[in-house]
Computed example of a mutant assay.
Amino acid sequence: MKVLFLTNIPSPYRIDFFNELGKRCELTVWFQARNESNREWEIEGLGRHFRYQFLKGRTFGLDKHLNLSILRELNAEPFDAYIMGCYSSPTEMLAIHWLKLRRKPFILNSDGGFPGNDRWLQRKLKTYLISSAALWLSSGSSCTRYLEHYGAAADRIREYPLSSTVLSGEELQPLAPEEKAELKRKGNLEGVVLLAVGQFIPRKGLDVLLRAFAKLQRELPEGKASLLLIGGGPEEARYEEIIREEGIRGVTIKRFLQKNELLPYWKLADAFVLPTRYDVWGLVFNEAAAFGLPIVTTDRAGAAGDLVRDGENGFVVPAEDTEELARALRRLAEDIDLRQQFSRRSREISELYSMDRMVDAHAAILEGWRTEREVASREHLYLDS
C-alpha cells in the first residue's frame, strides 16, 4: 500500500514513528522544511525505512510553510492513501484543496486543539479544511472534541495513542543513590525536585510556575523542595527577574538539552510540572509518564484526561491559577506515598502510549482504509456496468 504523509519538519518522535510505520506499508513522507526557528533537535535515522523528500519552498514566521512545489509533486505520483499531518500551513491548505477538487479522499491527522473564539472567516476556513477529510486521526478525547467542533464526523474519527519517544530498558534504569546525590549537589537542588521541561515562551506558563513555587516555599520548611527549569528561550530573563522579585531560592535554570542530555534529569526528578496556557498535546508528558513521574498540568493541555489523569497519576489544575497550582505542588512535596502511587500509575498509563501501539493503531486504520476503498471501487464498477 502506497501511503503519503505530509508533515512540517523531521522531529525526532515522528522519525521514530515513520521508520516503524514504513515497515508496514510503502511509506513516503514529504517535509515542508528541514527545521523551524524555535526547534533545536538532533535527528537520527531519517529515511531508514521510508522514502522522504524536502519540498522546495519558504517558511514565514516560526512555522508557516509555503511549498508551491507540492502541486507538481502531487500531480507526478499517485498514492493509495494521503495523510495530511495538519491543515494550518499554506502548503497543507494547498494540498487539501488539490485533493478535494480531484475528489481524492484523504485522511487528516491532528495532535489536538481547543476551539477558540474564531472570527467568522477563520471559523469557516477551519471548518472547510477539517471537514474536507474522509477520515480523521485523533490523539485523544480533547482532539476528538476539537475535530467534531469543526465538522468532523464522529463515526469517522479514529483515536490512536500518541507516543513521543522510544526509550530502552537501559535508558529507563533509575540513577544509583550516589549518582542522584551528586547530580543534586551539582545542580544546587535540595529535597523534592520538581522538574519542568519546555521552551521558555509565554505559552508554557513557567512564569505561573515560578510564582506558585514562591508561594510553596513560604509554606514549607527551607530545603524541602527545589525547582529545575530546562528549555531555553526568550523568556529566560523574565524568569530570572521573577526569581529576584519574589526572593525565590532553590531554582536552577538550564537551556535546551538533547534527549541523551535530558535522561539523568528525568531520573533525578520527583515530579513533573508544566502549567501550560495552551498545548495541543504536550509531548513532554509522554516522557514524564515513561519515567514514572507524577505530573501536574493544566486543563489547557491536550494530554489532560488521557495521558494525564487528575487524581490518578497527577493533578490537572485550571490554567493561570497560581493558588491551585501551589496547592497541588504542596500535596506532592509533602506526601511521599502519594508520589509513589502516582508514579506507579504514570508507568501503567505510559505503557498504553508506546510507539508499538501507535504504529499498530495506524497500520490497522490504514488497512481499514484500503478495504473501504476497494469496496467503494467495486461498487462504482458495478453501478457503471
Rank of each mutant, 00 (worst) to 15 (best):
L189I: 09
V308C: 03
D63P: 04
L228K: 07
I230D: 03
A214F: 08
R102D: 11
A225G: 07
E26V: 01
S226D: 01
A196M: 04
R102E: 11
E334F: 04
E178V: 14
L55A: 08
F285D: 00
G57S: 13
G232C: 04
A212Y: 07
E379V: 15
Y52K: 03
R345W: 01
G250R: 08
L263Q: 12
V166S: 11
G116T: 09
I43L: 11
C143S: 14
I230A: 08
R51A: 09
A81D: 03
Q32M: 13
A326Q: 09
E323W: 11
A81N: 05
S89H: 05
F315A: 03
L101F: 12
S343H: 01
Y87D: 03
E246I: 09
S139T: 01
E182C: 01
T59I: 15
I96L: 04
G198Y: 00
E241C: 05
G113C: 10
L4Y: 05
L183G: 07
N117V: 14
E190D: 13
F342T: 08
Q199K: 09
F31T: 00
V375P: 00
E236R: 14
D299P: 07
L195Y: 00
R238H: 13
M358C: 10
L71R: 11
G305I: 01
L189Q: 01
A33D: 06
P294K: 00
I107A: 05
L209V: 03
L210W: 06
S343N: 01
E77I: 06
E245H: 14
R378L: 15
D155Q: 14
G140L: 01
E171T: 10
E148Q: 15
H149I: 08
L129G: 06
D155L: 07
L21T: 01
L293I: 09
L194G: 06
H49N: 14
A333T: 08
T127S: 13
R357Y: 08
R277P: 09
H49W: 05
A95S: 12
R102Y: 12
D335G: 04
R357G: 12
A363F: 02
F213P: 02
S139C: 09
W369V: 06
R339A: 02
G231E: 00
L55N: 12
A319I: 02
L101H: 10
D63V: 01
R339E: 08
E159T: 11
D360K: 02
V284Y: 02
I43H: 10
Q217P: 06
E26W: 02
K254R: 15
R203G: 07
V375E: 12
A153H: 13
H149R: 14
E320S: 12
M84E: 02
W369G: 03
R277F: 10
N75P: 08
G233S: 04
I365T: 11
K259G: 07
L108Q: 07
L381H: 13
H380A: 15
N286F: 04
E148T: 15
I107N: 00
K100D: 08
R373Q: 14
A271F: 07
R58N: 15
Q32Y: 03
V273D: 04
E73V: 13
V251I: 15
N35H: 11
G113Y: 00
G232W: 08
K2E: 06
A81R: 00
Q53G: 09
I295D: 00
L381V: 13
E320M: 14
Y82R: 00
R331Q: 12
R378C: 12
A271N: 00
L263A: 12
L293M: 09
A153R: 15
A301H: 02
E351D: 12
R238W: 10
T371H: 11
I83S: 07
L121F: 14
